[in-house]
Write a protein that binds this DNA or RNA. Structure first.
Length: 930
RNA sequence: GCCGAUGUGGCGCAAUUGGCUGACGCGAUCGACUCAAAAUCGAUUGGGUGCAAACCCUUGUGGGUUCGAGUCCCACCAUCGGCACCA
């Protein structure tokens, strides 16, 4: 027989989940009479199993959404799946499962797991990005952008495996080799589809209308990387114009050579016969490196002279043209003028290859000489060796604010050899992927090589299911005749585009689809959009700072400019709502990022192994796991220490003093592990786990289902919110969860197992009321600020107060009941099932989640007395309890009269007495400076 | 390499605008209950000196600003996230 009076989450949680679903408690419907709140949390990729990281991201977001709902908002909190992507294709190649089957099975599984969270997701709004109903509109967006001139075709570098004849993702390339086969990978130019991401650079630099974390804004700002300077046209000796971008046109007179990216189109033409071989070899070598490797500033400069020359347009001198991998084809014009005296990279390059260095900016009091300079100088100074600019000030500032830059630009523009220019680090968005499992690009290539979009009534272009996966990873669409062969608008044979879209494209508009996932006339229903948009708060990982979150903003701006929100805005206006937030083109008004839950640290088994030695390796036929305290003193021929790594039967053992030994456990070895009966297997030996990201291969993955099974979803939710700084994350601690388990059980026992007296002591009741309101303040503030841990700490503190009250038994039933009622409402966002169960048991009307949030009353929270903190020279030396409404004069007098202060003054007078008034619940302070 | 963040007891963390460092927990130690263990309950718990009162030290390191610094400034160290085809 089970004890019905004990907290039993396994019975309560499924019961309420079912009830809520039946009652459509979380169905979010448009209601113009209520203020709306669109709470969005990043949708998961269906990798297979719901991870503790998903819980960490989603359940606190859910708690906050629930809080907003109790605050009176009509809350939309949807969920879906970002279902296209590489892992599904890898599964197909490696395990012969169709990506669709694999993905849909994973989604099914994760949906079930997600229900156990007890989150208020409105499942009727679910979207799945690999569903044709969804990607029809992803394709439609592509087409809209194409027709508006926001999509175009151009060349870009890709990771190309010559052996596999396929394109690889960055994550598939390790140290310039394919991670699967170890075959070399090169950088190759291919024609691909792009979005004019750079169209909105300046607008995306503006964050005036959003509440986003400062670090994210800084990262996006740097990612966009606006710089002011000039474009200058040099000429090669053959007469070809060679344009460069520079932020320092004032230093043009010091440009003693040029450097082109190895991929630059003019390289071919300027290279002389003598240099051809060296140039080709260098190009090949550069193609083997990624951009990150190439841009590492500290590394030795490499490069090759092309044999060609250009003319410096201001000095008319002949300067050599080199190629070097520190110049990127993707930035600026892919060519630079090198001013070694002013740029450290150019300086290093010049020194290495014996190129001329001409100082052009010289700080006052210095005398630079190109032959003796030791480092480049990029600070402020006076112009020298610069013809018309000589004697001018270069003040170190960017753009026209710098007089020398200003004069240089004017000079260039007057002569038509250059012009002022703003450059961005941001590149256009390459959306083509040479993969199968993605949204098709709805374009066909006509016989003449031009492209035209697929007509709307033929959307979506469906991904064919009958495809073959080659072990090379080549896109099956390339081999699928039936998919490729089609006709153009004139009925002539044409070829379908076989590239698919970047999955970031799918995730750049999903929150619009949630509004009306089954809407047929467009990507979203304007009626729904008018009410719910924009997203009020978006939660997710900070790792999306520069990509997803920037794409999302681009989409919103492009959609606005293509008039996609016009209808919704008309409806908004009709309801008297301001449309400014739509005109900003900002998809999410508030953004907050959570950190990551890392794996738990675990000690490895401490072992004594014996056997035979062979080439510094012990082949052990006996391994005993022991307590380190009992380690044998004599260790010759033995290996004694903690297992830090185990691969199959191969152990790496830490024997102390930073030394390790390798032990191979022979097949029939005798292994004993305390607590495990009989002979053990080598794979039962545990190795040390460090705190690091969870991954299957490291064996440190925390499975939420297991913990839900043990303690219930409410405890797992509460622990994730209590045990971490949400914005920071941290290692999982399987012991730490005990704290919330005890709390939840305590609350259960307090609410169900105590009979208060009919009437109580007035002062005790006043004290309880005070604590109730102090708790309301703490819990509310925590939820507002995403400091879930302090909210729960407040509730735990309140639990402690209630236990004290129970012991004293001096609070009457009415006051007690009121306190319990308020507490249950406050617990509802964190432990929704238990709060609902206890709410029902207390006889209150269903549902606790439809109650309004308790109102905070500052008067009721106020203390009668406070501690006056007395400092001497800033150090706390004394405390005294005083009335809470103590004034400044009285506080000063009280402090000065204290013995501690008198002693410190030692008959003298204080130099200064500083009074710090009480504010925001802090104590007043007096600091006496002796 | 570049961009961004973080660093406080044995551990997770808290500290609102520059104003009592360590709330709330985990763990640990001692005690109660128990034949015993678990659970639960009570007490202690940053380090040091001291019988005690009390005093000194302590927020990654080194400087600085201030009556007062975990918080602001400068330099450095360590760790984590991102770097455009992972999502």
């Amino acid at each position: 027989m089970t004890d019905n009076t004990k907290y039993n989450p396994q019975a309560i949680e499924p019961k309420w989940q079912e009830q809520w679903e039946q009652d459509k408690l979380y169905r979010a419907k448009v209601d113009w009479n209520k203020p709306k709140h669109y709470a969005l949390t990043m949708l998961p990729y269906p990798s297979g199993d719901l991870h503790i990281g998903h819980w960490f991201a989603m359940t606190p977001s859910d708690a906050r959404a629930r809080y907003m709902r109790m605050r009176g908002f009509n809350v939309l909190f949807p969920m879906g799946f970002d279902a296209f992507g590489l892992p599904a294709e890898n599964a197909a190649v490696q395990r012969n499962i169709h990506p669709k089957k694999w993905t849909l099975a994973n989604i099914e599984r994760m949906r079930k797991q997600m229900r156990s969270m007890g989150a208020m997701f409105d499942w009727e709004r679910e979207m799945v990005s690999c569903d044709p109903d969804y990607y029809k509109w992803t394709e439609w967006f592509f087409k809209q952008f194409y027709q508006a001139g926001l999509a175009y075709r151009s060349e870009a570098l890709v990771n190309w495996s010559p052996t596999l004849q396929t394109v690889l993702a960055n994550e598939q390339v390790i140290d310039g080799k394919d991670e699967r086969t170890g075959q070399p990978v090169i950088q190759k130019m291919m024609t691909q589809w792009f979005f004019r991401y750079t169209r909105y650079t300046d607008e995306m630099l503006n964050f005036d209308n959003v509440d986003w974390p400062e670090p994210i804004r800084i990262m996006q700002t740097n990612w966009i990387g606006r710089s002011e300077g000039a474009r200058v046209v040099f000429k090669t000796e053959q007469g070809d114009p060679l344009e460069v971008y520079t932020t320092r046109p004032d230093t043009l007179w010091g440009a003693t050579f040029m450097v082109l990216a190895p991929e630059h189109p003019l390289v071919e033409k300027v290279t002389t016969k003598e240099q051809r071989k060296a140039v080709d070899a260098y190009k090949e070598q550069a193609a083997r490196q990624t951009e990150i490797e190439r841009s590492a500033e500290g590394r030795e400069k490499t490069g090759v002279f092309t044999g060609g020359y250009a003319i410096n347009p201001v000095t008319n001198t002949r300067i050599p043209i080199w190629i070097a991998d520190y110049v990127m084809i993707t930035y600026g014009t892919g060519a630079i003028m090198a001013v070694p005296s002013g740029d450290q990279r150019d300086f290093d390059f010049a020194r290495k290859f014996g190129l001329e260095i001409i100082p052009v900016v010289q700080p006052e009091g210095e005398k630079f000489d190109g032959k003796t300079m030791e480092v480049a100088y990029d600070g402020a100074g006076i112009m020298i060796n610069s013809g018309p600019l000589n004697g001018m000030i270069s003040n170190g500032q960017k753009g026209r604010k710098n007089p020398a830059v200003d004069a240089a630009i004017t000079y260039l523009e007057e002569r038509g050899i250059g012009k002022e220019s703003v450059n961005y680090r941001l590149r256009d968005w390459l959306i083509s992927r040479q993969r199968y499992w993605g949204s098709p690009i709805p374009m066909v290539e006509k016989q003449d090589g031009t492209f035209e979009p697929v007509p709307d009534d033929q959307l979506p272009v469906l991904l064919p299911d009958d495809v073959d996966f080659l072990p090379t990873g080549q896109s099956p669409l390339k081999l699928h005749e039936g998919f490729q062969n089609t006709v153009d608008s004139e009925g002539k044979p044409a070829k379908r585009e076989t590239d698919t879209m970047d999955t970031f494209m799918c995730s750049s508009w999903y929150w619009y689809r949630y509004l009306s996932p089954h809407f047929q006339q467009g990507p979203f229903d304007p009626e729904e959009a008018a009410y719910w948009l924009p997203v009020d708060v978006y939660t997710g990982g900070a790792e999306h700072a520069t990509m997803h979150l920037l794409y999302a903003r681009w989409f919103a701006k492009a959609m606005r400019d293509l008039g996609m929100f016009e209808e919704a805005m008309d409806i908004m206006k009709a309801h008297g709502r301001d449309t400014d937030s739509m005109l900003w083109g900002e998809p999410m008004l508030k953004l907050r990022n959570q950190g990551q839950v890392l794996g738990e640290e675990r000690d490895g088994h401490f072992i004594v192994a014996s056997g035979t030695w062979q080439a510094a390796k012990l082949f052990a036929d006996k391994v005993d796991v022991i307590d380190p305290a009992n380690a044998p003193a004599k260790r010759s021929k033995l290996v004694v220490g903690e297992i830090i790594k185990r691969t199959e039967n191969l152990l790496t053992v830490d024997i102390g003093n930073d030394e390790t030994r390798t032990v191979e456990v022979v097949p029939d070895a005798v292994i004993t592990i305390p607590g495990i009966e009989g002979p053990c297997r080598a794979d039962q030996l545990k190795h040390h786990l460090e705190i690091q990201r969870m991954s299957k291969s490291k064996g440190n993955v925390v499975n939420p289902d297991e913990w839900v099974g043990r303690y219930g979803a409410d405890s797992v939710r509460a622990y994730l919110m209590f045990g971490f700084d949400w914005q920071k994350g941290g290692p999982w601690d399987s012991k730490g969860i005990q704290g919330v388990v005890r709390w939840v059980n305590d609350v259960w026992d307090i609410v169900t197992g105590y009979q208060p007296p009919a009437s109580g002591d007035a002062e005790a009741e006043r004290n309880l009321e005070r604590r109730v309101h102090q708790t309301i303040r703490r819990v509310s503030e925590g939820l507002e600020n995403f400091s879930f841990n302090t909210s729960i700490a407040g509730l735990m503190g309140f639990r402690n107060d209630l236990k004290d009250v129970m012991k004293a038994s001096n609070v009457g039933a009415a006051a007690w009941g009121e306190a319990i009622k308020t507490m249950l409402k406050m617990m509802a966002p964190f432990t929704p099932h238990m709060a609902e169960e206890l709410w029902a048991q207390q006889g209150h009307s269903y549902s606790v989640h439809q109650q309004s949030w308790p109102e905070f009353d500052a008067d009721k929270a106020a203390e009668d007395t406070v501690t006056l903190v007395i400092q001497i020279n800033g150090k706390v030396r004394d405390r005294v309890s005083v009335a809470a409404d103590i004034g400044e004069e009285e506080a000063r007098t009280t402090a000065m009269e204290r013995e501690t202060v008198q002693k410190a003054l030692n008959g003298g007078t204080a130099k200064k007495v500083i009074y710090v008034p009480a504010r925001n619940g802090q104590e007043p302070k007096v600091n006496v400076v002796v």
